[in-house]
Each structure stands twice: as structure tokens, then as C-alpha cells.
């Protein structure tokens, strides 16, 4: 199915919806696409008669929405209190340096995307990162490269989608 058809399917479930349906629609579209594309925002805007700037404003208010297509491996860095105390700022620094992208962005080769989350709920493993739901405990800037290399190897080994 094409991207537009996906969006239309979501919007179809919200026929005659008002602007109060915006957040559920954004969540459902992100569920399907993994992020909110410009195209999606325009389509949602037409459906709800809302300007794109307003939808962007609402979506940027919440941490949960992304505006870049997620990478093959989606990295979530926990910046909750326990992880912070145990040095998650340095872990995040190491990740942005190593990947060359800021939180919310995706590497140019499409392999990694980076996201900050408030608390993963695994404080005992702090500082923790999650890669496609797989947890890596007790991270340090030194360990980051090892973890990333393992995924890079895995990505190279597998045939890509396109």
C-alpha cells in the first residue's frame, strides 16, 4: 500500500472528526508509518481543516511524535533521573558523535535513528539504551561503539529492503 493510502485508511476511521481527534490521528498515522511525514500532515490538515503549522505545533509539543523516517535500528536513550545520575548525558553525547545525527534524526544511510525518552522503566540497568526494543544495560561512552558496530555488522549481512 502507498503512503497516502495508509493515511487515508486512518482518516477514513475518523470521518466527520473535529480537531479534538487530531492527537489520536497523529498517533495512528505514526503507528503505521513510524513517523509523521509532511505529506501526512497536509492530508490530516485537509481532513480536519487545520493548517499544517498548527498540526506541527501540536505534534512538537509532545515527545512521542517523530518527523523523520525511523532507521532500521531505532535507538532510544533513556534520560530519566536514574540514568541521568549514572551518566546518560555522556552516553547520549557519544551516540550523537558516533552517529553524526541529533536526537529525532535518522542517519543518512537509514540504518540508525536516535530518540530521547524520559524513562524506559529499567532504572536498575541505568544508564540504559534500547535498540528496536532490545535493552543494553550499564552503557558507557566506550561501550557505545561496540554496540553500534554489532548492529552495523548485522545490517551489512542482511539484504536491504530496496
Amino acid at each position: 500500500m502507498t503512503a497516502i493510502a495508509d493515511i487515508q485508511t486512518v482518516l477514513h476511521k475518523h470521518t466527520n472528526a473535529g480537531r479534538d481527534a487530531l492527537i489520536p490521528i497523529l498517533q495512528e498515522v505514526q503507528e503505521v508509518h513510524g513517523y509523521l511525514s509532511k505529506e501526512a500532515v497536509v492530508q490530516i490538515g485537509r481532513h480536519l481543516k487545520l493548517p499544517a503549522s498548527k498540526i506541527y505545533g501540536v505534534a512538537t509539543f509532545y515527545n512521542q511524535f517523530r518527523f523523520n523516517a525511523p532507521g532500521k535500528y531505532h535507538i532510544q536513550v533513556c534520560r530519566g533521573t536514574a540514568c541521568h545520575v549514572k551518566g546518560s548525558a555522556n552516553v547520549l553525547d557519544a551516540l550523537t558523535r558516533e552517529l553524526g545525527v541529533a536526537p529525532g534524526e535518522t542517519t543518512r544511510d537509514g540504518v540508525f535513528s536516535l530518540e530521547i525518552v524520559a524513562c524506559i522503566g529499567a532504572c536498575g540497568l541505568a544508564p540504559v539504551i534500547s535498540v528496536n526494543g532490545e535493552f543494553h544495560a550499564g552503557m558507557t561512552p566506550e561501550k557505545i561503539k561496540t554496540v553500534l558496530d554489532a548492529y552495523r555488522k548485522e545490517a551489512e549481512g542482511e539484504p536491504t529492503d530496496d
Binding site: 509532511k38 500532515v41 493548517p51 499544517a52 503549522s53 498548527k54 498540526i55 506541527y56 505545533g57 512538537t60 509539543f61 509532545y62 518527523f67
Partner: peptide, 19 residues
């Protein structure tokens, strides 16, 4: 027209165009 609106939250709030 609504070319611009508030984006972001808290101390990171800015006036921004869509995207």
C-alpha cells in the same frame, strides 16, 4: 493563513512554520 504557530514546549518553545 496560519503560516506560523507555536512549536515545541516549555523553554524550547519557538514560533515556527510547519516543519
Amino acid at each position: 493563513v496560519s503560516a506560523i504557530d507555536f512549536a515545541g514546549r516549555g523553554s524550547n518553545t519557538v514560533i515556527s512554520t510547519a516543519f
